[in-house]
Nucleic acid binder design. Structure first.
Length: 123
DNA sequence: AAGGTGACTGGCG
DNA sequence: TCGCCAGCCACCT
């Protein structure tokens, strides 16, 4: 039987100009409300590439110091801060989140039940 | 241009 | 619920 995958594969990964994804990621991260957090996967989905969670991390990793993108509001699916500790930013991320009254569980994770932002509809 | 890296995630035991 | 494994996609050299 011929591979009639047509468009039923559910993921129409439309090829876009280089950097378009990155620009979209930054745009969405900027929309995360203060006191809220989103997962890498959430941002990836909003940016049009649900499977590119790691790509989101790569984009945030490339942010410059003068950037107005609230990178600290992006955590992993479990609410953990997965930034490399060596960069010294992991503790900074936690500090910034706490300054926005984001609560952490005893296990050191963001209380997603209370602070998880999943997009424009979810706010 | 090609291959390696990683601020992830879903699936499984 | 937790830990481990493999797949994924964009970025960088």
């Amino acid at each position: 039987m011929a591979p009639s995958f047509s468009s039923t594969d559910g993921l129409a990964r439309e090829r876009r100009p280089p950097g378009a994804f990155a620009a979209d990621v930054r745009s969405w991260v900027q929309r995360i409300p203060e006191g809220k957090v989103a997962s890498y996967g959430d941002i990836a989905a909003l940016a049009g590439s649900p499977r590119a969670a790691r790509g989101v991390g790569a984009v945030l990793n490339g942010l410059t110091e003068g950037s107005d993108v609230p990178w600290w509001r992006v955590v992993n699916r479990s609410g953990e801060l997965t930034i490399p500790a060596e960069l010294g930013r992991r503790s900074l991320q936690r500090t910034l989140l706490m300054s926005e009254d984001v609560r952490f569980t005893p296990g050191g994770r963001v209380d997603l039940a209370r602070h998880h932002w999943t997009g424009p509809d979810g706010e």
